[in-house]
């Protein structure tokens, strides 16, 4: 275990450099694209002296390293700077918008994990039979269909034709958001025991989460299927069968666990990537998430907001990666006990 601990400490250490590197890159990019952020913030009719004052306040007249230094100093004290658009401290914005996206991606992740294993295992179990073909066709469709197309289809269908599930926002009109503990409505409402809000929040989550999940879900199902069919030809499986173990043990234990190892890494990356990919889905379902916030920040050249969002995404990516490594190490003793690291 010692070896593993050291491995994770090393990973954590590298992650810090990754984040610093990422912040530098995004900081520079955000500042070299044309357009004066101060002018954009104040509008075309603002007097020049106001613009100049704002430029001075934002340290825009200093050279890049100095600007970066001011920014890092702020971040270190929890001050991500002011958003030029919302006119609030970006920290406030992140606090408001991040939980909505986290909640969305979390449910999507549950869908991805559950259904990719289910479909992958079914297809592998019935390899080359009609179930396999059906899942294959579903997978091609699901992977080829961008999440925003699916989102629009859902919106049309459940918004106009069969309105059984709400399609816009996080809560129905007339309901109030639960007190903030985590910012995730479903969890906060459960914490205060408000089942009505919980149920409503869950229903609002359903469609956007599904739209977001379908692509990665089927991609992962293909991976699960192929690693399962690969492992099906292994002697250790023949051995389990030859010892007379029941199908459910052979498939559910001896085949499933080793087959999950390659799938987990890809799943982790895909789930982390959903944070950013959620943008169009958030726009379509009017979901007040950070992905949408980040995209709007880009369009308005809202420097502090852009940097903050990117760093938050980077942080989440790094955390998910470490989590994935932990899960893989749990699944695969060859990594956990040395030899593989």
């Amino acid at each position: 275990m010692n070896k593993l601990h050291r491995y994770f400490l090393k990973r954590l250490f590298y992650s810090i450099f990754v984040l610093i590197g990422l912040s530098i890159v995004i900081f520079v990019i955000a500042r070299v694209v044309p357009g004066d952020p101060a002018r954009m913030a104040l509008g075309p009719r603002a007097p020049q002296f106001a613009v100049d004052a704002l430029r001075e306040e934002m340290h825009l007249n200093n050279n890049l390293p100095t600007q970066y230094f001011y920014w890092v100093k702020g971040v270190a004290t929890g001050d991500l700077g002011k958003s030029l658009v919302t006119k609030r401290n970006v920290t406030e914005d992140i606090k408001e918008f991040l939980p909505a996206t986290l909640e969305l991606v979390a449910l999507s992740a549950v869908f991805v994990i559950m259904f990719s294993i289910l479909f992958g295992a079914l297809a592998a179990r019935h390899k080359d039979k009609w179930i396999d073909s059906l899942i294959r066709v579903m997978a091609y469709t699901g992977v080829a269909m961008p999440s925003f197309v699916l989102a629009v289809l859902f919106l049309l269908f459940f918004g106009y034709i069969w309105p059984v599930i709400p399609v816009l926002g996080r809560l129905s009109a007339g309901l109030y958001a639960p007190p903030t503990f985590t910012g995730l409505y479903t969890i906060d409402s459960l914490l205060v025991g408000d089942l009505e809000v919980f149920w409503d929040a869950l229903k609002h989550l359903l469609l956007p989460a599904l739209a977001l999940a379908v692509g990665p879900l089927f991609q992962e199902a293909r991976i699960v299927r192929s690693s399962m069919t690969d492992n099906m030809t292994k002697d250790y499986l023949a051995s389990a069968v030859a010892f007379g173990m029941p199908d459910r043990v052979v498939m559910g234990k001896y085949l499933l666990k080793p087959s999950m190892i390659p799938a987990v890494s890809v799943m982790g990356l895909d789930i982390a990537a959903m944070m950013g990919n959620a943008f169009l889905v958030e726009v379509i379902f009017n979901w007040p998430g950070i992905s949408r916030f980040g995209m709007e920040a880009m369009l308005h050249k809202d420097l502090n907001a852009i940097s903050a969002v990117i760093v938050v995404f980077g942080l989440i990516f790094v955390l998910v990666n470490i989590l994935v490594d932990l899960i893989v190490a749990y699944l695969d003793p060859r990594i956990r006990l040395g030899g593989g690291v």
Binding site: D235, Y236, S239, V241, A242, G244, I261, D332
Partner: peptide, 22 residues
């Protein structure tokens, strides 16, 4: 029943016959 009570087999390649993750 035959597999679980009658016969058993030792495979040619012991590394391949044991499941690596259990």
């Amino acid at each position: 029943k035959i597999r679980s009570e009658g016969m058993s087999m030792i495979f040619q390649e012991p590394s391949a016959a044991l499941n690596p993750v259990f």
